[in-house]
Amino acid sequence: MPDLLILEPTRRLMQTTPIAPVHLASIALEKSYRKGNHQIPVLRGVEINIRRGEFLSIVGQSGSGKSTLLHVMGLLDSPSVGEVLLDGDRIDDLPQKTRDELRNRVFGFVFQFYHLLPELTVLENVLAPLMIRHSMLSYWKRRREFRLAAEEILEKVGLTHRLKHKPNELSGGEMQRAAIARALVAKPEILLADEPTGNLDAGTGQEIMGLLRNLNEQDGLTIVMVTHDESLARSSHRLVRLTEGRLELLSDAA
């Protein structure tokens, strides 16, 4: 049954883009943390090519460095050794300002712990990436358009009734969905989702997965998702496991 679920979208993808170009890639990625005099390696040479429109799932033990990998790939952190490539160009050594801009325009983040801004309402939280992208004047001019876009996304994740709520008035699942809406509102090319279903019951988790798959299929969004749930992971195109700082392929539906 799960197999059918994956085969369907994959086939369609194969038909539209026979060999999609590499979208995001890493070369010999290493990341270690300094603890006193010791270097604690977390990533020890991660090599991966993620194709445009691909849905990649990463599984791994807790503490194996999955979040770290997403951070490095998404320019939140810089690698100790190695390179991150976007459309074949190295991006991890770009100047700070350019990386800030790439984070805003190219990547959409869904954090493991939601990370919503507590002072803002759900709607404002979702609008945050747009506020950051646009200057005050141009935001003000287009505020209606942005608001509509945000409401549309929030409707997609089923939060229309919570627009004016503050994050602390939401359940974990609702916060997770608000976080997804925020990651999507700025129309990113790549979605980096760190356990987007980690705090949800199976039903809601399925819903979120369905949403992500839809985005992936209809909008051609490239998705990298970290998860603990292998059954959910199986519905993606490719599944890799992070062990001992390296990736190993578990299944490739393509």
Binding site: L76, D100, E101, L116, L117, I132, R182
Partner: peptide
Amino acid sequence: RDIGILKALGAT
């Protein structure tokens, strides 16, 4: 943490 979030969302 809020500052971290803002930076992650691309704030300079």
